[in-house]
Write a protein that binds this DNA or RNA. Sequence first.
DNA 1: TCATAATCTAAACACTGCTTAGACTGGAGA
DNA 2: TCTCCAGTCTAAGCAGTGTTTAGATTATGA
Lengths: 220, 220
Amino acid sequence: MEVNGSRKRETYHHGALREELVQACVRLIEAEGIAAVSLRRVAREAGVSPGAPYHHFADRAALLSAISARGFELLTQDLLSAVGPPGTTSGGDEVSRTVAAYVAFARRQPGHFQVMFRPELSEPEKHPAVQEAGDAALQVLTDLVGRLGVADPHALGLTLWATGHGLAALALDGLLTQKAETWDTDPDELLARAVGQIGRSVDALTGHTAESGRATDPVG
Amino acid sequence: MEVNGSRKRETYHHGALREELVQACVRLIEAEGIAAVSLRRVAREAGVSPGAPYHHFADRAALLSAISARGFELLTQDLLSAVGPPGTTSGGDEVSRTVAAYVAFARRQPGHFQVMFRPELSEPEKHPAVQEAGDAALQVLTDLVGRLGVADPHALGLTLWATGHGLAALALDGLLTQKAETWDTDPDELLARAVGQIGRSVDALTGHTAESGRATDPVG
DNA sequence: TCATAATCTAAACACTGCTTAGACTGGAGA
DNA sequence: TCTCCAGTCTAAGCAGTGTTTAGATTATGA
């Protein structure tokens, strides 16, 4: 049942307990889901007594909010790598790449992602670092959209954030795989098509009128 | 602290405990958030002992999955009211209306909505009724998209589902209100603009080329 | 009427988050 | 080197949780 093995240590002091608690918690979420996360369990995985975590985190929510904040930082980096340098004019391709990066992040770091969008776990109102890290990530999208020259950048920024997040959530919940089976497609390819379509519709909104595929072409 | 008052009843048998447990649970989520939900607390709200719910639900997840399934049924009805009758050709307006109905549902039934998309709570793999109810709701979107005559209906259906869900989640988490303040707009109007934009981009994808607003018009 | 099934209570188990008191120890100042 | 202290950890305990079991109560239907 133990994810880590929780082997005993020889020194009384752990040395880097705070970091190990974070990592053990992320491992636990990825292995058994968020429902399996308890502070006592995480402490056990780290080979430490149930009270030890409270010297590094005020409470359970503090540990989870630390994971959430770090997740937003990692996401920001990924999004920044996907968008072009500031000053460039951007288009649908860049939007597609960015949304794809969003979804890819959720699949590569499912442990972080699952905590980031469950505010009842990390209580962001008590932990402003989460808010700030989340704002920074959204800012990347807002900047990108601002360079698009679209009529209503705020609305589009919100929509892209929502779509990226929704696709990621569907992918993590297994609904993507399930639907792909129903439709007899490959889930990754279905996702790629959805992401590409978003870029094309953004081009359409900006009036780029890129080759958006002739209508009424059924896809097998 | 009690949401209901949990007044004593005079009869030994409750009479309609199953339904009251469901309602008490939804009330509790809406009043204090999902973190406050425990079976014992729900039983207390219903004025009943901690063991009583187990004669109506196998476990905690079963109660939550019942709420989830009913939520999907209500959502399906709302979506069906928003889309046109089958056989009609549909356009961006209908898509906008449907996405708006999705978001409106989440705001009108926040208790149900918060359970519907947290699979670790309702364990849908153990409760097929949730899966089926969810599939039925998604089917409404899929049918709508199928009548659009778009090149890749599967990808678009997935994207619309993700976007509607993402917007709803943002609205419930308070992130919508927060961003609206930052941008000095009304949250409801921001949402309406986002939803309208989705319809227009769908029209653009289908080649309807509805008046999509001139590009590079900054919005105040 | 009366047995039976359904419903509920009471008590108990192992688990949880969190607090408190005390044991240990690494490191700075003498 | 010794000492002391702040930081780190353990042990024990409280209240709350999900769930099970045994038994009390009541509705139902033959």
